[in-house]
Amino acid sequence: SMEVLPPLSRVVRSLVELSELSEDENRKLELKDQAKRMQGYLMGLSEVSELKDEGSVYWLERAGKKNQIIHLRSAPLDIASVLRRDLFGKQTSIIMTSATLTRKGKADCFKSQVGAEEVKEGIVHSPFDYLSNMQVRILMDSPEPMSGNRDPYLNYLVEAIHGSASAMEGGTLALFTNYSDLKYAYHHLLPRWQKIGRSVYAQGEGFSRSELRAKLIEEEDALLLGAESFWKGFDAKGPCLSQVIITRLPFENPSHPVMEAKTEILAEAGKSSFIELTLPSAVIRFRQGVGRLIRSQADVGDLLIMDSRILKKNYGSQFLSELPNPNYESLSLSELLGE
């Protein structure tokens, strides 16, 4: 790997030599530390430029406000073998807990993904009374979110969020699968919410996640629009979060390098990446999103699912079967708005 980037190799060598020549103990340690860091960069660059591991996928990513920061990324395509060897094979006690590890009441899918096939599983049912405490409504006439002309969908999105959230006495969390739809909704809802004297907040509009949570709890009747990290681990108990809106079923971006590479492997084996990958991970994320609503035994709330594909597509039943309350009402936008 030292031959890959000769100038960087020379810097590493010079740092090592300088550290050996230095008589000042602190400087010696500092130079050694920097040499070690540079060596790490060198190894990373050489791994990416030579695509060293056949079992990994490598890609470049732009980041930062002006897209001027370039990240070199790599990810292993199979983590099961590594975890089997380095974690489960170590004869140590391990407990893995989560509310969303199972599918159809079994953890098989998760166990094979992480190499924990031999691990015992136990399923504990929720202490919450979802049948009494959670109302589920599904909109049945939402336009196709991915159609060429997105205006009908975006207008529908804004009207449905505005109508359902402004009718709530408490607060609402609307979950999005992408930032462009979130931004569109925010800018169109803001003037309407200012008119009714209530706050609307959005991820990426000046506040951190913990500040947004504090505002939702403090104001008790705000509307919060969130994407990725708000689907999981976001906790706001009581009436400040009286409604969760799932704007779209949370399918991952199929063009992400890791998804693309896994899709290629499955295609070679004659398997469908949608059935094996996309659908299972979307169902888990859907469950995580639904889980934002009822956070304690006394909590009550409304769940509004805006994606009509859950009723119309064959795969919809896989999402519906994971609802904690299976009794849902399907309605049109005009019925929702009371027209």
Rank of each mutant, 00 (worst) to 15 (best):
M2L: 13
E3P: 05
E3V: 12
S19Y: 09
S22R: 11
S22Q: 14
D33V: 10
M43T: 14
G44V: 11
S46L: 07
V48D: 08
V48A: 14
S49R: 09
E50V: 07
L51E: 15
L51N: 14
V57R: 10
Y58G: 07
L60P: 06
A63W: 08
G64P: 09
A75P: 03
I94S: 02
I94P: 02
D108R: 09
D108C: 04
C109S: 12
F110V: 10
V114P: 06
G115W: 02
E118Q: 14
V124K: 07
D129L: 08
M134L: 15
V136H: 01
R137F: 11
P143C: 02
P143T: 00
S147N: 08
P152W: 00
S164D: 04
S166I: 10
L175H: 01
L190G: 02
P191K: 05
W193R: 03
G197I: 09
Y201G: 06
G206S: 03
R213E: 10
E220D: 12
D221C: 11
A222S: 15
L225K: 00
F230A: 02
W231Q: 01
D235M: 04
A236N: 05
G238K: 04
P239M: 07
P239K: 08
V244Q: 00
R248G: 04
L249C: 06
F251K: 00
A269E: 15
G270R: 10
G270S: 10
F274A: 07
T278F: 10
P280Q: 05
P280R: 03
V290Y: 06
R292N: 04
R292T: 03
Q297E: 15
A298E: 15
I305Y: 00
M306A: 04
M306Y: 01
R309C: 01
L311W: 05
K313S: 07
K313Q: 14
Q318S: 11
Y328Q: 01
E329W: 02
S330H: 11
S332C: 08
E335D: 14
